[in-house]
Write a protein that binds this DNA or RNA. Structure first.
Lengths: 341, 341
DNA sequence: AGTTGTTTCTGAATCGATCCAGAAAGTGGC
DNA sequence: GCCACTTTCTGGATCGATTCAGAAACAACT
């Protein structure tokens, strides 16, 4: 009944706990023949291996990085952008013999508890929104942590791009081509249609607005259609925009996934991209290139690697690091001058 | 420099460690006024809260269930089936104040290590394949664990449906309708085109075969096309099948997601479902109903709940529980008699 | 005054490993 | 035969909390 520990094995063989521990963790510290006997005895006694909890407590290092996700798991994984980011993060983590822990929460209330109780060496928060209770909990844990992409908050470690400036550049590109009737397709907010809650979406909308104001285009005349963050969501959302009279000549989607759905919706109407409607995305996922989508490219895997290095580098003394990664406007075939109307 | 612990606070206030511990974990065990002072001092000293590792070691319970995923994260999350399952699991876990830990591995070799070192109360392995090294590691940890859906192995705790029998029923349905030229769309295996590695896919193929043999249809004449597990993968895979001469009159996809892609491919050829080609799926995800897809319905969330209860119920003594859940053939509009050729 | 009970707090033991300083035995060089 | 060095093993301290039996103070009831 009593569980099998190092002590059980040590007593069975008449050696010390330390020696048994070495047999598992530092094989070069003992005689190979004795080690063989120890492992054999461990196997016979049903020893499950050194207890990870005790080991972590003593070593003061868990060998784990926590990745915080919001409730909608599908949000994070349906988007190839997230997968790329995680690949970069996992790469750096693996070099430090560290594994990733994806933390799924039933809801916001549980988030705080989860952050407080997770056994990790650091956190990376992904897809949070401004004001999420976990953010304060993160600060209190006094472990290294980084907010990725959104929200950007003063005094909080951050890695991402300047979403607002990038969005402005993208919108300015459309305005330069001559577009004046714009439609925006944004990810759905948590709060319902009133307010755009997600930091990145909000920053991107602000960037579009900046560009409009600079070009003296009336921002209030721009229709903002919210939708689910998926290809299908882009299709149905775009359908709404295409029903408007007069129809927008350009659709700005806040992510590539949505933009790809929008392109599909345009085709289903028997219209052409960019002949009748121009479409832009955001992120430059692999499928964007194939579809000839004009978008903002951001370094996805590199972002993950940067986050990993930051977290594994130890606690940040003093100032919180805030790293802005480079981005690039990729103009492809999905944008052109608007049709003569 | 030295970290702030219970002891630091206790000494600062001249009370015992136990009392400070109670202030955090058992508020009813001490004077409210003293508790207030303790929490205040903790805040001032920058105490990050009781160390989760130490707490776990002492309590002997982590309050965490590990969910094992294979390398392809997208595999698990692109499929609404997985999301539903996790919802059920999370529900039961939440009732026991337990959170879920999604474990992402860089690769198979890392799997063993991760299982050995994870600080959890139990494991649920999802989307593993037969012979995965993690399976042996799971057994050795002597913690409760369950294999979900695939692979089904003797002596290993299991929850799922009888994939083979379900697949047989589905295929028999097509054969009853009169189909004789079948095409199969299966998820890609790890090993390449030679052998179908994933347990469920293999079991489903075996079921199709059973039905064919019972109806004296030549199984060797059935083309098996492998593809990526996604809607897009289904589209391209089905395109290959539709290029065959003579064209199959029915396509059996091993998952709904693939089937939905197949339906799209048929439409793109200017053909009709089920007029020219019948299509079947597997799992009955929400989108399957909308698309009128004939498929096998299995209880997704209930499966998650069952797994959760099993894991939280403690270690299984003696025999490994193997639970087969009910399934149901859902005949919808995507299947009909083959065209007169 | 004595018994019982409640509230509030304490000290030592414990969870299961790892780390460190050092002991014991054996090796090699001079 | 002595010193220096390596290999192999040991015992005790430690990581940071929780648990448990019990002490101290005080109230309530015979």
């Amino acid at each position: 009944m009593a569980s099998v520990t190092l002590k059980t094995i040590a007593e069975a063989l008449g050696v010390s706990r330390t020696t048994v521990s070495n047999a598992f963790s530092r094989p070069d510290q003992l005689n190979p023949e004795l080690r063989r006997r120890i492992l054999e005895a461990a196997d016979e006694l049903g020893y499950p291996g050194p207890d990870p909890t005790a080991r972590t407590l003593r070593r003061g290092k868990a060998g784990v990085l926590g990745v915080l996700l919001t409730e909608e798991l599908s949000y994070a994984f349906a988007d190839p952008y997230a997968v790329e980011f995680l690949r970069g993060l996992a790469e750096v983590a693996a070099e430090a013999s560290t594994s990733l822990l994806l933390m799924a929460w039933p809801g916001d209330e549980a988030a705080e508890v989860a952050v407080r109780e997770a056994i990790v060496d650091g956190f990376c928060a992904f897809c949070l929104y401004d004001g999420h209770p976990a953010i304060e909990a993160l600060r209190q844990r006094r472990l290294p942590y980084v907010i990725v992409g959104e929200p950007y908050l003063p005094g909080v470690p951050f890695v991402g791009i300047d979403d607002r400036a990038a969005a402005k550049a993208l919108c300015a590109h459309l305005l330069r081509l001559g577009h004046r009737r714009l439609g925006v397709l944004s990810t759905r907010t948590k709060e319902g249609p009133g307010d755009v809650h997600f930091g990145a979406a909000r920053a991107r909308l602000a960037g579009y607005r900046d560009a409009c104001e600079e070009a003296a285009v009336d921002w209030d005349g721009v229709v903002i259609q919210q939708t689910v963050h998926s290809r299908e969501g882009g299709r149905t959302g775009a359908a709404r925009l295409l029903d408007l009279h007069p129809r927008p000549t350009a659709i700005l989607a806040t992510t590539d996934l949505i933009a790809l759905g929008a392109i599909q919706a345009v085709a289903e109407r028997g219209l052409e991209v960019p002949g009748h409607v121009s479409v832009t995305g955001f992120d430059d996922i692999p499928a964007a290139g194939e579809a000839g989508l004009t978008t903002i490219r951001q370094p996805k895997a590199a972002k993950g690697r940067t986050v990993g290095r930051l977290l594994l580098g130890g606690t940040h003394q003093g100032e919180a690091p805030q790293i802005l990664m480079p981005y690039e406007l990729i103009a492809r075939a999905s944008t052109a001058a608007p049709p003569d109307s």
